[in-house]
Nucleic acid binder design. Structure first.
Length: 251
DNA sequence: TATAATGTTTGAAC
DNA sequence: AGTTCAAACATTAT
């Protein structure tokens, strides 16, 4: 799950802010009974993580590749991801106004009474504190790396994942294997700006459950912009899959 | 049905 | 000691 999905999840779960967890269940082995009868003070995202803040500690959820969650608020189902089948949740809460089930996710505790204040939101692509100048500067400090690798760097573009990487590079008309030093300052700025715009587009599409049909290059056989063939290959030191339009993506 | 994949951490191997 | 890399985890659409 990528940054915009977590940002949306935090919004969808906002009705649970201030609520007390009536019961906890799940197959997580980190000692989740600690959460029983605790009041959720706030719920927010940070990059690709979802955070529940409690009085003296926080709960951090990472959905990785296959994770998903479901929630019911006052009898209305909120489906953050594609519906989870009948499975045992990694972690589930019952609250006065509904319930949450989280599946196949990485769960951990953070010993902080206010973890949000310790996080740097200037690198979080979904945050209004996000600093595009800082991102541009950081890009230039990674001039020897391939642009596709740098876009996935969570210390620069926190929240960007492989779908966003591929779609942004198509929109920018840049091949994923292009080294940062081979790109002009104008082109680098364009990539930064397109990334920021695209993550909010991703968020809107996801909210409407129309994300997948709006992919222009990711998982496509033909480019949705120009109908030319799309090639697929592992690129960079991260060895993630890149989908590349053979016509749109030059530099 | 086999395959690939919205991702990261861990620890072995070099 | 620092780097690299495979393994592990877990699910579903194609």
């Amino acid at each position: 799950m990528e940054g915009p999905s977590l940002f949306l999840a935090a919004e969808q779960l906002a009705p649970f802010k201030g609520k007390v967890i009536k019961s906890v269940s799940g197959n997580s082995k980190i000692g989740i009974e600690r959460l029983d009868k605790k009041k959720i003070l706030s719920i927010f995202s940070y990059g690709k993580t979802l955070i529940f803040q409690f009085d003296t500690f926080a709960l951090r959820i990472h959905f990785m590749l296959f994770g998903s969650f479901q929630a019911t608020v006052n009898g209305v189902k909120v489906t953050g991801d594609y519906p989870a089948k009948a499975r045992i949740p990694r972690l589930a809460f019952e609250l006065a106004n509904g319930s949450i089930q989280m599946y196949s996710c990485s769960v951990s505790f953070i010993e902080s009474a206010d973890i949000k204040s310790e996080y740097d939101y200037t690198i979080d692509i979904m945050s209004d504190e996000w600093d595009s100048k800082k991102a541009l500067k950081a890009l230039n400090e990674h001039s020897e790396e391939e642009i596709a690798d740098v876009l996935l760097d969570q210390s620069i573009f926190m929240g960007v994942g492989n779908i966003i990487k591929n779609e942004v590079l198509l929109l920018a008309g840049v091949a994923p294997t292009t080294k940062v030093k081979e790109l002009s300052p104008q082109k680098l700025k364009k990539i930064v700006d397109i990334t920021r715009d695209y993550v909010f587009q991703f968020y809107e599409w996801r909210k409407l459950f129309v994300l997948r049909k709006n992919y222009k290059v990711y998982k496509q056989k033909k480019c949705k912009v120009c109908a030319s063939p799309v090639i697929r290959k592992q690129t960079g030191t991260r060895k993630r899959t890149s989908y590349i339009c053979t016509v749109c993506q030059k530099y």
